[in-house]
């Protein structure tokens, strides 16, 4: 077993884990953060995307021990409880999902995309989301949601409520 200490969605956590435990397993099975889902389990689909030190990663392709000493943000930590991040709001408004399975990863990657490039073109959005697969609807409304969130000035750290006032 290996000792890890990290910050997850703003809370300090420490645990003994097997070195082979994946970050996504740790988040779901140890911390109960089932908002982060396992899709393909082969690092293709992006459904498990979280932020590690503020950058998007596929949490099925990171070991929990590699997150030791670092900061993880999941879809559950994107906004204060009871409120929505501007990107979540935009996905809701633009109907950017059907079954919703890809949505946590789509939203986390979309937030990362706007952190890098606050005003992306449609091409830049599609390229920025190339590591996230949606098997229901295609990507049309997802792209619209990212455009809407960009127009609303979405960034990582601020919950939607604060953004409305800003």
């Amino acid at each position: 077993m290996a000792r890890i200490e990290l910050t997850v969605d703003g809370a300090q956590v420490s645990d003994d884990v097997e070195p082979r435990m994946l970050l996504v397993q740790y988040l779901r099975e140890k911390l109960g953060k089932t908002g982060t889902v396992i899709g393909c389990d082969t690092s293709n689909c992006g459904a498990c995307t979280v932020h590690l030190d503020g950058r998007s990663v596929k949490s099925c392709n990171v070991l929990a021990v590699q997150a030791n000493g670092h900061e993880v943000t999941t879809i559950e930590g994107l906004a204060e409880p009871g409120s929505l991040h501007a990107m979540q709001e935009a996905f809701h408004e633009c109907h950017a999902l059907q079954c919703g399975f890809c949505t946590p990863g789509m939203i986390m990657q979309s937030v990362d995309l706007l952190n890098d490039n606050p005003n992306p073109s449609e091409d830049e959005i599609r390229n920025g989301l190339e590591g996230n697969l949606c098997r229901c609807t295609g990507y049309h409304n997802i792209v619209r949601a990212v455009q809407a969130a960009a127009a609303a000035g979405a960034t990582t750290a601020q919950p939607a409520a604060e953004k409305v006032e800003a």
């Binding site: 990663v57 392709n61 190339e130």
Partner: peptide, 9 residues
Amino acid sequence: VADPQIRHR
């Protein structure tokens, strides 16, 4: 290379 998430790691 791959996608943005992979390029971060």
